[in-house]
Deep mutational scan, measured.
Amino acid sequence: EPIEAIAKFDYVGRSARELSFKKGASLLLYHRASEDWWEGRHNGIDGLVPHQYIVVQD
């Protein structure tokens, strides 16, 4: 079951695997890939989301 998150800041992906998004964007998170990253989805694209840039919705 994906988790919803909201972007705290704009983020520009630094590689093809990283998602880019704007502050306030809604993201879906699948699972924690590491301490710093989530596997997630934004605008229909799957990729990595940096933990420091999002607020996970409970």
Rank of each mutant, 00 (worst) to 15 (best):
K22D: 12
I54N: 01
G24L: 03
S20W: 05
G47T: 01
V12F: 14
Q52A: 12
V12Y: 08
N43E: 15
G13V: 02
G40S: 05
G44D: 15
G47C: 02
F9A: 09
L19N: 02
N43M: 15
P50D: 04
H51Q: 15
Y30W: 11
L27T: 02
H31L: 07
S20A: 07
Y53D: 08
G44W: 04
D10H: 07
S20M: 03
S15Q: 15
V12N: 12
F21E: 02
G13A: 14
V49M: 03
F9L: 09
L27M: 12
G40P: 01
W38F: 02
P2A: 15
W37D: 02
V49W: 00
E39S: 08
S34R: 12
H51A: 15
L29H: 01
E18C: 07
Q52W: 08
A33N: 09
I54G: 02
R14E: 06
K22V: 11
Y11N: 07
E4F: 14
Y53E: 07
E35T: 05
S15W: 10
S26M: 13
I6M: 11
F21I: 06
F9H: 06
L29I: 14
H42M: 06
W37E: 03
H51W: 05
R41T: 09
P50H: 11
I3C: 02
L29W: 00
S26G: 12
L19W: 01
I6L: 08
W38K: 00
A7T: 02
E1I: 15
R32V: 04
Q52I: 11
A16R: 11
R14D: 09
G40I: 00
L19P: 02
L27W: 00
Q52T: 09
A5P: 00
R41K: 10
E35C: 09
I45E: 11
N43W: 05
N43L: 15
Y30P: 01
A5F: 03
I6R: 13
N43G: 07
S34A: 07
D10S: 12
H31C: 08
P50I: 04
L48N: 06
Y30R: 12
W38E: 00
K23N: 05
G24C: 06
A25I: 03
P2Y: 15
L27F: 05
A33D: 12
G40K: 01
W37Y: 13
G13P: 09
L28A: 14
G40T: 01
R17Q: 10
L28K: 14
A25V: 07
I3T: 10
D46T: 06
H51V: 06
K8N: 08
W38V: 01
G47A: 03
Y30E: 07
L27A: 00
I6Y: 11
V49E: 00
Y11P: 00
S20L: 01
F9I: 08
K22I: 04
S15P: 04
S20N: 04
D36N: 07
K22T: 12
L19C: 07
A16D: 06
Y11T: 02
K22M: 09
A25D: 12
E35R: 10
A5K: 02
D46S: 10
S15V: 08
E1D: 11
D36K: 11
Y53S: 12
K8V: 08
E4W: 05
P50N: 10
G47Y: 02
I6K: 10
S20Q: 05
R32L: 06
E18Q: 12
P50Y: 03
V12S: 11
G44T: 09
N43K: 09
H31N: 04
A25N: 08
K8E: 09
F21R: 00
E4C: 05
A5V: 10
L28R: 11
I45P: 02
L27C: 06
E18G: 03
E35K: 15
F21P: 01
D36P: 06
S26D: 10
K22E: 14
D46K: 09
G13W: 02
V49F: 03
K23L: 06
Q52Y: 12
D10M: 06
A7L: 01
H42V: 13
E1A: 05
G13Y: 01
W37R: 05
P50A: 12
L27R: 01
Y53Q: 14
L19I: 11
L19A: 03
R41E: 03
R41H: 02
S20K: 04
E18R: 04
L28W: 08
L29A: 02
L48Y: 10
Y30V: 12
W38C: 01
E39R: 08
V49P: 00
V56I: 10
V55A: 14
Y30G: 06
H42W: 09
L48V: 08
E39V: 08
L29Q: 00
A25P: 00
D58I: 03
Y53A: 13
V49Q: 00
I45F: 13
A5M: 02
S20E: 05
P2V: 15
S26W: 09
A33K: 10
Y30F: 11
W37F: 07
D36G: 13
G24I: 01
K8Y: 07
P50L: 08
S20D: 14
G24A: 06
R17A: 11
A25F: 13
F21N: 00
L19F: 03
L29E: 00
S34P: 02
F9V: 07
G47V: 02
S26K: 05
A25G: 11
S20T: 12
L19E: 01
K23H: 05
R14N: 10
G44K: 15
W38S: 02
L29K: 00
R17T: 14
H31Q: 08
A16V: 08
S34G: 12
A5S: 08
F9D: 14
L48G: 03
E4P: 09
V12Q: 14
G47F: 01
E4K: 11
E4L: 05
D36I: 08
E4I: 06
K8H: 13
Q52N: 09
G47L: 00
E35S: 12
E18L: 03
H42N: 06
W37H: 12
E35I: 07
A33R: 14
E39W: 07
A5W: 01
A33H: 08
H42D: 04
K23D: 05
D46Q: 11
Y30S: 12
R17W: 05
I45A: 10
S20P: 02
H51I: 05
A16H: 09
L29R: 00
S20H: 09
S20F: 02
L19S: 02
R32F: 03
A16T: 09
P2H: 15
R14F: 05
K22S: 13
Y11R: 06
N43R: 10
L29V: 09
A16Y: 05
I54T: 08
R41P: 01
A33F: 10
G44I: 03
A5E: 01
Y11K: 02
N43A: 09
V49G: 00
L48D: 03
I3E: 07
K8F: 05
G13R: 09
R17H: 10
G47H: 00
R41D: 15
L29N: 01
S20C: 06
Y53T: 07
P2G: 15
L28T: 13
G40R: 00
R41Q: 03
L48I: 04
R14C: 06
R41S: 12
I6A: 07
S15M: 14
I3D: 04
Y11S: 03
P50K: 11
A25K: 08
Q52M: 14
K22P: 07
A16W: 07
Y11Q: 02
H31W: 08
F21C: 01
I54K: 01
A7V: 02
G44S: 12
A5C: 13
H51R: 12
L28F: 13
E35P: 09
L27N: 00
L28C: 13
V12D: 15
V12G: 10
H51S: 05
V55F: 06
G47R: 01
V49D: 02
S26I: 11
G47K: 01
A16F: 05
G47S: 00
